[in-house]
């Protein structure tokens, strides 16, 4: 009896600590986010850093986003065709590819690719700067690390990722179109008309809003874990791993919530 009670208590204690740990973590991330926002709104502005971040987060992510989208769009067309043919609804391929890419797969896959590509590199770079005392050096040179390192990257995430999502949506739809026209015998013009007619403004808006939120999450997590890195190579490794995990999970959770907000009202 007493051992049962004790193990129950130990379990509840562990659960409580985990929950408290999570709450504390949310608080720290929230504070970090507010700190970043407040620095975003105050001068000075580091133009060169922002330009570099836009280049890294946006432009250089285009190839991976394009490849992800085109293969996904193609596979989606094949799947919908195969699934649709079970109840003679093959004709819906253009509509479902469009809605699937724009509402869900475009933002989520771009978000996850950004988490893989950008979050990890931000976390590793900033963590290395931390362990080699470069962050301390910045401070002694009267430069705020949040303003100099974090703001440009988060800003780039907020600006570039929606654009990347738009590009991903278009390329994904094109991938579906190519497969449908080449392999499934769809008429090219009708496919395009069906796509364009079917999509509503809200679909596109939700896609871009998701992109913006996911971009913010991905870059913020990279910066947060990088700035909080422990010492040594192991610290950098942990920071990088943690940042990608957190970014991916938060992106999927945010996607669920945003989908709820946009489409179940």
């Amino acid at each position: 009896m007493s051992t049962l009670w004790r193990s129950l208590r130990a379990m509840l204690g562990a659960l409580g600590r985990t929950v408290l740990g999570w709450l504390a973590a949310i608080g720290r991330v929230g504070f970090f986010f507010l700190d970043t926002l407040s620095h975003m709104l105050r001068p000075p502005v580091y133009g060169r850093e922002i330009f570099n971040a836009l280049l890294n987060v946006g432009w250089l992510s285009l190839p991976v986003v394009g490849l992800t989208a085109i293969f996904t769009g193609g596979a989606l067309a094949l799947q919908i065709y195969a699934g649709g043919s079970r109840f003679n609804a093959e004709a819906v391929v253009p509509q479902i590819v469009a809605i699937g890419m724009v509402r869900e797969l475009g933002p989520v896959l771009v978000g996850l690719m950004i988490a893989a590509r950008v979050t990890s590199s931000i976390a590793a770079e900033i963590a290395t700067m931390k362990v080699t005392e470069q962050i301390d050096a910045l401070v002694t040179l009267s430069t705020h690390p949040i303003k100099y390192l974090v703001v440009p990257r988060v800003l780039a995430g907020l600006i570039c990722v929606p654009l990347l999502v738009a590009v991903g949506d278009i390329i994904g739809i094109f991938g579906g179109y190519a497969v449908a026209v080449q392999n499934l015998g769809f008429n090219a013009a009708i496919y395009l008309i069906n796509t364009v007619d079917f999509l509503e403004p809200l679909d596109v808006i939700s896609s871009l809003v998701k992109g913006c939120v996911f971009g913010g999450i991905a870059t913020l997590m990279g910066c947060y874990y990088g700035m909080g890195s422990g010492r040594g190579a192991q610290g950098v490794g942990r920071a990088t791993k943690g940042s990608v995990e957190a970014a991916a999970v938060l992106i999927l959770a945010a996607n669920f919530m945003l989908t709820g907000v946009f489409f179940s009202l």
């Binding site: 700067m129 080699t132 005392e133 470069q134 301390d136 050096a137 002694t140």
Partner: peptide
């Protein structure tokens, strides 16, 4: 400040 490891950017 000169840092022990240099701490160059």
């Amino acid at each position: 400040m000169l840092f022990q490891g240099g701490a160059l950017f």
